[in-house]
């Protein structure tokens, strides 16, 4: 099989997903030999996208005209576009105040100079382009990235779990931070794949992997309210990675 051509890029992001790629220290030399990297500004000197690209891994949300231009360019010369990371798939941390005035946020930082900034509320990719696959996480799991690359070498894509973090947490026999320790643990609502690494070290799930399918948001909210947390506190925690939760959703 011909070596697949890949692109790796970031938009409005922290480079955490690109770093996840570079964190595969043992596998990097092999990856560099089994794939052709066409476009990777953080790791390659060439700054032009020549294409055609088989798979583009792009991280970050879209919040500027430059971002939009980049994602459209990548989409149009790539066979598969992978939304890499929670920002690309759900909006992510930069989107947490999407319901507030962006103009006011900008002015708070830049003062009058904010008027010349071209920025809009950070959006996930699917608002603008068709997305073929997603690897969620903030940061994504190294294992899921490697599984995806390995599957691509065989002409296919992996299947990731669609059950919540709680399933993995119970499997590990972690102490339940939500029920037994009364903390705002978002485990029941969040997509698994991280093997509940945070509860395993005694830290509640912050929801960095975004919503699981059929999340029972209303039940979790009711439970947290009954434990004495204010609605304000609950919403603040939940908005952190995904600003568009449907708080009435039960499945």
């Amino acid at each position: 099989m011909k070596k697949p051509t890949i692109a790796i890029a970031g938009l409005t992001a922290c480079s955490g997903c690109q770093l996840t790629f570079l964190n595969c220290e043992e596998e990097l030399p092999e990856i560099a030999q089994r794939f052709v990297v066409d476009y990777f500004p953080m790791g390659l000197t060439e700054r032009l996208m020549t294409g055609p690209i088989d798979v583009a891994f792009v991280e970050g949300a879209i919040s500027t005209p430059d971002d939009l231009e980049t994602i459209i360019k990548l989409r149009s010369c790539s066979r598969l576009l992978v939304a890499f990371g929670t920002c690309a798939l759900w909006g992510g941390i930069a989107a947490m105040k999407n319901d507030e005035s962006r103009k006011q946020l900008a002015e708070a930082i830049y003062g009058p100079a904010a008027a010349s900034l071209m920025t809009f509320n950070p959006q996930p990719f699917h608002r603008f382009v068709k997305v073929d696959f997603a690897i969620t996480g903030c940061p994504p799991e190294k294992g899921e990235l490697l599984t995806t690359l390995a599957a691509l070498l065989r002409g296919t894509l992996p299947v990731f779990p669609h059950y919540p973090v709680c399933t993995e947490c119970r499997n590990r026999e972690n102490l339940c931070l939500l029920i037994e320790c009364n903390e705002i643990c978002l485990g029941p609502l969040i997509q698994a794949g991280c093997n509940a690494r945070c509860p395993a070290v005694g830290i509640k799930c912050e929801g960095c992997r975004g919503p699981v399918t059929e999340a029972n948001v209303a039940a979790e909210t009711d439970l947290l309210l009954s434990k004495g947390f204010s609605r304000e506190e609950i919403v603040s925690r939940m908005q952190r990675f995904y600003p568009e939760w449907n708080y009435e959703q039960r499945s």
């Binding site: 500027t64 920025t119 506190e233 952190r240």
Partner: peptide, 25 residues
């Protein structure tokens, strides 16, 4: 792209700050 972290943090509890701020980079 500016993400306005210093403005995002306003109104957040001190307990949330470290978890948010580490995502600057």
């Amino acid at each position: 792209s500016p993400r306005f972290f210093e403005a995002l943090l306003k109104g957040k509890s001190y307990a949330e700050l470290p978890e948010i701020i580490c995502r600057i980079c």
